[in-house]
Simulated assay, not measured.
Amino acid sequence: MIKKIKWKKILLVTVTMIGVMIVVAGSYGWNLVTSTFTNIQENIDRKESEKRLASINFDEGDPFSLLLMGIDEPDEDEGDPYRRSDALVVVTVNPSTKSTQMVSIPRDTYTEIVGLGEKDKINHSYAFGGTEMTIRTVENFLDIPIDYFVRVNMEGFEDMVDALGGIEVENDFDFKYRGTHFEEGTLQLNGADALSYARMRAQDPRGDFGRQERQREILQILIDKGASFSSVTRIEEILTVVEENIRTNLGLGDIWSIQSNYRDALHAIEEHVVAGEDGEMDEVYYYLPDEEKVQELSKVLKEHLEINNESTDK
């Protein structure tokens, strides 16, 4: 069996290798790291979110939220020209309670696309309106503010795996995907195979939830390998991959503050799933969320963020 993937390190890296940059900064060269970090900044026009009336102060230990977005390349072989969010993970962190809540949103979740004026799969929000529309849509879906985001090009997984010399995974069932045979047991994967391993969904008896677990498995392995001392010798290659594939509105100072002031919050992780059921409309598959359960989840997240429910009601 694949070991249960623990999420407690995902915030430290906030997608693959941001944490590695900090780990190796002192030993390799702070100037190179800060230069790379400057190039991955993307301060989109968020204006004032109606769901967040006050700014976040990391030094004072304010709870905050983060949206982790994995963006897929267009599938030109299938005539699809659009980039969509292949993975959406909402993270809320509260240093006072020393706890972290994490919600993985199924990509086919049927919900209102804010700014489009209609309902569709939540992962289509990126194709219609990029990062801004995706954030607004997730905010509306969970009725909480999204303070920060980290966006990753899913193709960057392939480059990162190769930069770290490949990875080893424990595959718990035999399957074939895009011409590659993934046998049950311990597998050594290069970048291309790791990406295929992370993407397969149709043959997984757990469907999209199984794919999410494999993606989290690879993230965890990349983080562990990237943070090891042996990775320092490949830091230039690693930083190049980071610069080409990651964008965020977190500043380097923010990352330092999170590492310093929020570390204990990562020791108590509670994972949530979006309750719902499979459905179909016009012969198109959707994941239909249970609205009552989503409201209950929203209440949990609001309490964790120390938000007055009345201030964010839809």
Rank of each mutant, 00 (worst) to 15 (best):
G226R: 01
R199T: 01
I218A: 01
Q215P: 14
R214S: 04
D208Y: 10
G185K: 13
R216N: 15
L189R: 10
R211E: 13
A227V: 12
I223L: 13
R211L: 02
S196V: 07
I223G: 10
A202H: 14
G226C: 10
D204Q: 09
G185H: 14
S196T: 06
D224Y: 06
I221L: 04
G210I: 03
R211A: 04
Q212E: 12
G210R: 08
A194Y: 14
L187Q: 06
I223D: 15
R199I: 00
R206M: 08
N190T: 09
T186W: 11
G185P: 11
D204L: 07
P205L: 14
F209Q: 10
Q212R: 03
Q220P: 07
A227H: 15
K225V: 03
G226F: 11
M200I: 08
S196C: 09
R199L: 05
Q215Y: 12
G191F: 11
A192N: 02
G226A: 12
G226H: 07
P205S: 10
Q212Y: 13
G226S: 07
R206K: 12
A202G: 07
I218W: 07
L187H: 08
E213T: 00
A194M: 09
A192I: 05
Q215M: 08
G185F: 11
K225Y: 09
I221W: 06
G210A: 03
P205E: 14
G210H: 02
G207H: 00
D224G: 03
R214P: 07
R211V: 00
G210T: 03
Q212P: 15
A194F: 13
M200H: 09
L195I: 02
R214M: 02
D224S: 07
L187K: 04
L189A: 05
S196D: 10
R199V: 02
G207W: 02
L187P: 04
A198L: 03
N190H: 13
L189V: 02
Q212L: 05
Q212C: 05
I218F: 02
D208K: 00
R199C: 06
F209I: 02
E217Q: 15
I223Q: 14
N190E: 12
G185L: 11
A227L: 15
L195T: 02
G207V: 10
D224M: 06
Q220I: 14
R199E: 01
L195A: 11
R199D: 01
K225P: 01
D204A: 08
A227P: 03
Y197K: 14
Y197T: 02
L195K: 13
R214C: 05
Q220E: 14
L222R: 02
N190W: 15
Q212H: 14
L222S: 07
L219K: 01
I221A: 05
A194E: 10
Q188A: 04
A227C: 11
A227Y: 15
R214F: 03
E213C: 00
L219G: 01
P205F: 00
A192Q: 01
R211D: 14
R206Y: 02
A192K: 08
R199W: 03
R216T: 09
R201G: 11
F209K: 06
Q203S: 09
D224T: 12
A194T: 05
